[in-house]
Design a protein around this nucleic acid. Structure first.
Length: 165
DNA sequence: GAGTCATTTCCAC
DNA sequence: GTGGAAATGACTC
């Protein structure tokens, strides 16, 4: 598969994403690893990704304005969802959450007919964070819950969307 | 199967 | 109201 990748700085974190066939197939906040390491990780999955911010400049701009506080509907960007049918149901439910809205794990669970615990597991495996806005899913007691790789990122993203934490 | 979770809910204090 | 335990369901090994 032929794919392109690019990175964007969001609030001091590097966000890398891979696009193939006009869809985002993989995204990740890089905490420790370099973007080269990210490219290698992608390649191990059988995807040859070439760094080409120019080809992806539309998305790069979108992310940059999101990073500077713009109301960008990232959940509208086409993504490739892989995972079990349960995972995909969870992802679809979450993509209905628009900018500035949140839901609890339990609410998502009721929509897809599973349990809060299972929703958390599905989100932990989310391959396209931000585009599937898993940071908008919080715990019912008002605390954040978890985030991979770091809740600090979840906190930042929610702050970007206007929540005071 | 047993063990692992990015949770929730219920029931004693 | 708080704290702990049980229920929970999908997943991995």
């Amino acid at each position: 598969m032929k794919a392109f990748y690019a990175t964007v700085e969001i609030e001091g974190f590097t966000f890398a994403f891979v696009v193939a066939d006009g869809k985002v197939i993989r995204a990740k906040f890089l905490t420790k690893e370099s973007d080269e390491a990210f490219a290698e990780e992608i390649e191990r999955e059988g995807i040859k990704a070439e760094r080409n911010p120019f080809a992806l400049q539309h998305l790069v701009r979108l992310l940059q304005s999101y990073a500077s506080g713009g109301r960008i509907a990232l959940e509208k960007v086409p993504v490739f969802m892989n995972g079990s049918s349960h995972d995909v149901k969870v992802y679809k439910a979450i993509r209905r959450l628009t900018f500035g809205h949140t839901a609890t794990y339990g609410e998502i669970a009721r929509i897809v007919g599973s349990s809060a615990r299972a929703v958390g597991r599905a989100l932990a495996r989310n391959r396209v964070p931000l585009f599937i806005p898993c940071h908008r899913v919080i715990r019912s007691d008002g605390t954040l819950g978890g985030f991979t790789p770091s809740v600090e990122i979840k906190k930042l993203l929610l702050k970007l969307e206007g929540f005071s934490l």
